[in-house]
Amino acid sequence: MTEPVLSIRDLVVEFDTTDGVVHAVDGVSYDVHPGETMGVVGESGSGKSVTVMAALGLIQIPPGRIVNGEVLYKGRNILGLDEDELRKIRNKEIAMIFQDPMTSLNPVFKVGDQIAEALLVHDDKLTDDAARKRTVDLLEMVGVPNPDRRFDQYPHEYSGGMRQRAMIAMAMANQPSVLIADEPTTALDVTIQAQVLEVMKVAAEETGAGTVMITHDLGVVAEMADRVTVMYAGRVVESGTVDEIFHNPKHPYTLGLMMSLPRVTGEMQKLLPIPGNPPSVISLPPGCAFHPRCRMSEGRELCRTKVPELVEASPGHMSACHFPDEVAIEAKREASVTGLEV
């Protein structure tokens, strides 16, 4: 296996709020290898976005605070680098695509200029003409029609899907080694989502980058990811290859996510939602943070008292559940309720 291009180690991020300290990220680790796509899955508030924002120094400090951890980019720790060094890494080495293309582009500047700026800030020698030419090429690559004319248009003249394409063009402008896409399709129409995912694949192939695909949508993960990290309440609860995670989940939360996912199979199925709500990240429940919502934990002292470690449940498959092997049994039980095969 190749060396990971991006490696997050034991990252802990907290926020001070009037209501107390928010433990947004609590000891998160995962690796991304060149050319592969790592899907990071979890509900809103699970800390999946904060993890990458903190890695790039894009959270506000204060109220934010990085308590612990390392972010290794090509083996070098970039966490806590000074602003100027981080600035040189952003977009050039690690580029981001954000959730809402409607608000992620600056409304008062031309789309083309905003993309070209990504080139110009990282290359003093680049002329404006050359930047424009390269930008037009990028727009063409991501499937924006009439790129030369589109260069001079403003964001409000672009549709949502087109804006997200422009954001992808911006992210791949400097051929980064890591692409981070934070819910890139969530804000888009379903019909546009598939197209944007296709463009994401093009971008990953063009740049050869390792991709972090942050999403709450298991469908996107199934479509895009090679490996998956599942996060819950600021912690990683399960990780493994996409096949392992989908066919052999080792954590009840992952199972719950899949059971609550509607599938078009022709038959009518019952959906089984995860009971309860995500926990308050200010005061996590003791023991396993998921236990109040977990059917498997009923009557089990261990789940309520001891925080489960993330350990290898089977080769290459990590789980933070005290009873990883019972997930399969639970899956069968739930399958009998819903008529759904995992």
Partner: peptide, 14 residues
Amino acid sequence: AVIDSAHLEGLEIK
């Protein structure tokens, strides 16, 4: 919104 709303989506409101 001092903290990006995304950072606090999970915050339970008393």
